[in-house]
Amino acid sequence: MIIRVQNLVKRYGDLLALDHFGLEINEGEIFGLLGPNGSGKTTAINCMLSLLKYDKGTIEIFGKPMTPDAYDTKRNIGVVMQNVAVFNELTVLENIRYFCGLYVSDKTERSELVEQAIEFVGLQDFRKFLPKKLSGGLLRRLNIACGIAHKPKLIFLDEPTVAVDPQSRNNILEGIQRLNREGATIVYTSHYMEEVEQICSRISIIDKGKTLATGTKDELKSMIKTGETMSVEIFALTDEDIEAVQGLPYVTKVTYDNNRLSVHCSGGKHNLIRLLDKLKERDISFGRVFSEPPTLNDVFLEITGKELRD
């Protein structure tokens, strides 16, 4: 177990930011903390990093209690903050060298690690650039390089893709997966469910400072009643046809609008085959067919009754 958080309570005055929050993260995982803005993700991370005092609970990292003085533990942790935290007065190279130097005292080893970090984030051509000369995407990459240059065993990435263009976002996500393949355990927070779904091996959904559900994406999806949603292009459909589709097993809702039949299921297998058989049986001709499995947003919606991005 790399991280164990139990019964964490954090209050900001009357506001309960973390309400008996808990999680366990295993070595080698990319663990996603998914929740809307203000759900307590960053507060949880700040508590885990001992940047914030908390009112109750325990935090263990690498099997040891995490405190502000746990310097040996901190040596193996890398942090990429939500906001870009670099020196505007230093160049790209100087920034990475500085942050790597806080962890690695050997000059030769440090130089190698800095070079590797620059290559890793693809900033080779920007070594002597000041941060203000970099684009938003490149700045995010520099932020990541500063956090991972010392090759930590555990990396916290707090919404690293906020305000980043799609191309840079893909680069960042690929980089995170590469870090994981190289042996790092990742704690990744985001309110973008697609990202979390794409890269995380296990996910914790949190809202209002509480852990609502934890598991792999399949485990989370299997926890809810919502199943796949099927869409079929049909040019003519009678009310009787719609009633017939409604009568199929596991079908919870059927709508027909703009020549598109949408069928929502609550689970079950072979729903699409059953639907197409029914259409054939009633001699209904159809065009393109789509089937969408439930998303984490559906999971969140069913658990909390609201959209993830509310």
């Binding site: 901190k74 040596r75 942090v79 935290a85």
Partner: peptide
Amino acid sequence: IVFNQPDLRKRNLCSPLKL
């Protein structure tokens, strides 16, 4: 001013560098 920037300060405090 530079070293007291909240984000930089947080990053420094996360490191093994003693306060």
